[in-house]
Write a protein that binds this DNA or RNA. Structure first.
Lengths: 194, 194
DNA sequence: TTACAATGTGTACAGCGTTCACATTAGGTC
DNA sequence: GACCTAATGTGAACGCTGTACACATTGTAA
């Protein structure tokens, strides 16, 4: 584990860039996430990051990939193994809460055109998609998990975005939670009783 | 109605900028939408647009506002006065189709942080929100239109975004249509039978 | 006609992404 | 330990961007 003792070589610039990028994202939103600002914060010349990221998009994709992993953790923390519609609704609430708590990160993850180049990013989104599918399958063993998981994901994702864009009442977390729960419950009561 | 006869004053630079901005958006995506490129296309100096738009965001907001109006027209064209869940589903299909047909425009409308400054933009989103509410109320006179319209809008909006991000199967329009219809039908069959 | 307000021009500055030649250093080989 | 090579960081440079400012031009109303 090299340190920043020798002032020339940084030691772990790749990780330092990622950390700086995330800090800038939280502080100034995605507009403040510039390669040069990242380099400045890492205490390194403007072009040094190019040794570790092909271009700005590559860095952003790496940030997004981290975001996907953290979203997955956040959902798992809401309920490790949901088995009832209510437990699943808790996961949905966590999804929307994640979006509202870290809007810039959520936008980086979903609002930009997803470049099919970044394998890291594609793998991360595939993982989360699979995760949702698994939950739905566990809660409703009988139904086709593909169709239902798509529907519930879309519903929750849409709620997240509309809240993010200020198109819904997001005044208090309680209001948001209740709304998400109600929407998910409505969707599930039909699927569970065919 | 002044013309571009006198080479100094453009005549209607405001509209020309809007048109140029929309063309650039379709050609190069939102990355190509720069104020300077707009000015070049309008055949005018780089700073001339500032007489009509305070900054780049103001121009983008104006483009988004046009997008909202066109989306409303597009939905109305799908079915002028939906009265059944199936007719409403047709409107939902039109919504997703709009997003897939004009991804750059859709992203400008929804994927960027909505600045509460632009009255034009706020009014346009309020109008479309009200429009959805009206439809839901017409199709389901009995239920609370606020809650249900929020849910259906979120569902359709989420479907649009997931398709846009390549997270769902968008291989053919038919596949997309069927999926949207199925999702909306599932949501409505419960709300219609309390 | 004349003054004023509206509109377009040109210059300038700082910041950005990115390329390229060069400097420095870490780690394996003799 | 000395040496070579690949990895990593530097600096200058280019063209692009948004935007501010002083100035030029023109439509319009008095």
């Amino acid at each position: 584990m090299p340190q920043a003792s020798s002032s020339y070589h940084h030691g772990d610039l790749r990780a330092a860039c990622l950390r700086a990028a995330r800090e800038l994202l939280e502080e100034d939103g995605s507009a403040g996430l510039s390669l040069r600002a990242v380099a400045r914060r890492a205490g390194v010349s403007a072009t040094a990051p190019y040794r570790h990221y092909a271009d700005r998009d590559a860095l952003v994709s790496a940030v997004a990939a981290e975001g996907y992993r953290e979203l997955a953790e956040h959902l798992a923390a809401a309920h490790p193994e949901p088995r009832t519609p209510d437990e699943l609704a808790s996961v949905a609430v966590a999804y929307v809460r994640f979006a509202l708590d870290r809007p810039a990160m959520f936008r980086v993850m979903f609002a930009e055109p997803c470049d099919p180049n970044s394998e890291e990013r594609v793998a991360a989104t595939a993982a989360i998609s699979e995760y949702v599918r698994g939950i739905v399958h566990a809660v409703f063993p009988g139904v086709d998990p593909d169709a239902l998981s798509t529907t519930v994901w879309a519903l929750v994702h849409g709620l997240a975005f509309l809240h993010l864009d200020g198109k819904l009442d997001s005044s208090t977390p309680e209001v948001v939670d209740a709304q998400v729960r109600a929407a998910v419950r409505a969707l599930f009561s039909v699927s569970a009783a065919p």
